[in-house]
């Protein structure tokens, strides 16, 4: 196991090192757009790492994670709109543009709806769970389409990026490194979490829920908390994407977006936490290169996905660490 562990550490170091070097490299090639592009991948990576917690460790295949992404983005968009024109949002509050207010709120709102969706869907499992989470995401998709006062189908422009004391979020480098730091923090927190007592419980629930019940655990409670944590991280990523594109629309909640997030997790290697970072990068690089090749790039991406699923089971990280089947383990050995 020691060998595996160190290989995974190398894989972790390598990808984070690479991501840290993106801005200087981009400047060296005089291509600032690269930073924007990689920044997008970073934000998706944050959401996907959060999704890996429940898919890879908790065994909850959520096909509706874009809902939380969108909820977070709309939280930022709606609060920002009111802050911009000074209109009343709710109870005399005119919204906010401060990241320290908006981003935690985005997480809270996402976690709140995560709790509601989770309470209903976690009582089922397997295919049922997949279908129900998908349907719930669709509910929120149509909700935002119908929200005509916030742009409805056309979406909503963010007039200003959020503000953070001492940082200029309009600066490409600053925003990039901020997102990078958040990704690191989320990854680190979740790495600790899956090796903690709580982590042990949700991994146990994935493997054998009945056994967990016989051992005195109520799986629903633990799964629900994990689901909410994952939703909150999705909400945070949503608030970041709203700042990144300065625009939110129901497209963020489209069902295919949920699929994309799942693809990122699997492509990178589920149950590894670092895998989704690889997955996000790989998917975006793949898309960019296919787009330059043909406008019908999805006709190539689709079969690639199928091949990955059929022949390449552990994802990129599984390949790098020599684990055909990515193991779902708490990080620490016993002793």
């Amino acid at each position: 196991m020691v060998k595996n562990f160190s290989r995974k550490s190398w894989a972790t170091l390598a990808i984070f090192g690479l991501l840290a070097l993106v801005p200087p490299i981009a400047h060296a090639f005089d291509n600032a757009f690269l930073i924007t592009m990689f920044n997008r991948a970073l934000i998706y990576a944050i959401a996907a790492v959060g999704l890996d917690l429940i898919i890879g460790f908790g065994g909850m295949v959520s096909f509706g994670h874009a809902a939380f992404f969108g909820i977070g983005a709309y939280t930022a968009g709606i609060l920002g709109t009111h802050a911009f024109d000074g209109s009343d949002f709710m109870f005399g509050w005119t919204g906010s543009n401060a990241a320290l207010v908006v981003w935690p709120l985005a997480m809270l709102v996402a976690a709140f709806f995560g709790a509601i969706i989770g309470l209903i869907s976690l009582r089922t499992s397997g295919v049922y769970f997949i279908m129900i989470t998908l349907a719930f995401a669709q509910l929120f998709y149509f909700f935002f389409v119908s929200l005509s006062q916030y742009g409805g189908e056309d979406g909503l422009s963010l007039w200003d990026r959020n503000t953070l004391p001492g940082l200029d979020l309009y600066d490409r480098n600053t925003f990039y490194y901020l997102c990078f730091a958040i990704l690191l923090a989320v990854w680190f927190f979740l790495s600790r979490l899956v090796a903690s007592r709580f982590g042990r419980v949700i991994i146990g629930c994935k493997q054998n829920e009945r056994r967990m019940r016989a051992l005195g655990y109520d799986p629903l409670l633990y799964k629900l908390v994990a689901f909410c944590i994952s939703a909150a991280i999705g909400g945070l990523a949503g608030a970041l994407i709203a700042n990144h594109s300065e625009f939110v629309s129901p497209g963020l909640l489209h069902w295919s977006r949920s699929g994309e997030l799942m693809v990122i997790v699997i492509l990178g290697g589920m149950g590894t936490l670092i895998g989704p970072v690889y997955g996000a990068l790989a998917l975006f690089l793949l898309e960019e290169s296919l787009v330059s090749f043909t406008e019908h790039w999805q006709v190539i991406l689709g079969p690639i996905l199928i091949l990955v699923v059929v022949f390449f089971r552990g994802g990129i990280v599984g390949f790098l660490t020599g684990n055909g089947k990515a193991s779902v383990k708490s990080g620490d050995d016993h002793g």
Partner: peptide, 9 residues
């Protein structure tokens, strides 16, 4: 069971 931080191992 809601300890999220300390390594159980």
């Amino acid at each position: 069971h809601f300890s999220f931080w300390r390594a159980v191992g």
